[in-house]
Design a binder for these strands. Sequence first.
DNA 1: GCGGTGAGCTTGTCTATACAAGCGAGTGCG
DNA 2: CGCACTCGCTTGTATAGACAAGCTCACCGC
Lengths: 240, 240
Amino acid sequence: MTASQSDSSPPAYQQVKDHILDRVLKGDWPEGARVPSENELTRTLGFSRMTVNRALRELTAEGWLTRTQGAGTFVAESRPQSAVLDIRNIADEIRERGHEYSSEIYQLRAETAGSVEAGLLGLEEGTEIFHSLIVHYENGQPVQLEDRFVNPAAAPDYLSQNFRSITPYEYLMKAAPLSEAEHVIQAIQPEPETARLLSINPQAPCLLLKRRTWSGGKSVTYARLVHPGDRFQLWGRFSS
Amino acid sequence: MTASQSDSSPPAYQQVKDHILDRVLKGDWPEGARVPSENELTRTLGFSRMTVNRALRELTAEGWLTRTQGAGTFVAESRPQSAVLDIRNIADEIRERGHEYSSEIYQLRAETAGSVEAGLLGLEEGTEIFHSLIVHYENGQPVQLEDRFVNPAAAPDYLSQNFRSITPYEYLMKAAPLSEAEHVIQAIQPEPETARLLSINPQAPCLLLKRRTWSGGKSVTYARLVHPGDRFQLWGRFSS
DNA sequence: GCGGTGAGCTTGTCTATACAAGCGAGTGCG
DNA sequence: CGCACTCGCTTGTATAGACAAGCTCACCGC
């Protein structure tokens, strides 16, 4: 049981963490499943119990596991919670939850900017602007309507992307790395058309997230993201 | 060096954490100041080095300290607070807009914690917990219902505050400086009682902001903030 | 059948010891 | 003077052993 690590492998507790987290993310151990006990992991992995304990303790602090003295260690219940208020990719989030992601593209074209969109993106009215309308699905259920305007100067190839394999978010982050962002969050009653696209009751409250982003002082995109209130929540945590 | 803790005092590593954090919060050790070394604390406090190490490691993870191998442990420089959805005082916001702020206190008392509140604050079910219910008005119109639970250990004088002249937010920030916060944002249809207190139609969508905060690893408060959808929006901007 | 009880598991903590790795000051050599 | 090296301090990690505290379940007595 002597593991004198003079090599350059990551520390033992980190290896244990990686090992456990791997299984959790892969879904080998579903939510609520029991994680092997410390003694079992000690035997299996060949590290001391204190090392295993540290790994499990840290994973618990990070929200992946729950532990109760006397009973055991378990995979934490799904954080239905979604995006921190930092900007993330909805496709990644859905896949991270182990769910199936899909999308439907309703519109993807160039338009002439109206005064509202032009103002929001800091462009002249009447200039060309890209516009996309996409619905994102989690396990076949719509979770987000993404109505997005893009500044052609910042992302000239926007229209020629294949948004079945890459989300607008992914492409834009690559084309124009984020340097600044603005969010406005509201609760709204959806427009009839929006309600239809999200397959929800027009009475149902929705979360509207309006987001503008800039890259190096140049405006990139303005997006209206509408989420069904009962199927979505925003989540954020930070330390100061 | 035998410290067999059969009493009910908090665990040794927690005592060490409290001791250090106390000095940091009190300002005995200003930002950047050197914290005594593990060996020194081991001698001073009478706990083993591993216990001291755990305390320092956790305080570092929580952002209070910085450590560099070979050099020492130092009080962390205070980081500017995350601009995204940063926590602000609704009274200040309203006054900044040049509007008149007022509030109505519907409840302010000690209760025994139910399982939900206890769980959210990390307390035992059945322990005492403070509960306040306040409606905030902008120019006489309700803009926020604040339903708040407070950990008495973090803010023992909560109930004796005069919340006509100081908001719960202001008092809590003074009593237990913010070190961590969690937000969950949802769109909901208000409960009838909520709708009544906010003078809105029960059909109207509302923005629900659930916020939990911690100070030095100790939970401080859990608040449910309900805003009428048509009279309120959250706003955040940040650079990266 | 039912209730209490204890054995055996679990996690939670603490200690003493050990070695590795990194920083910095001082020393000595060229 | 300048450079390299070493020594003493720091943090970082790992281990074995110990005990405390809490949950579960099988067993026993009624």
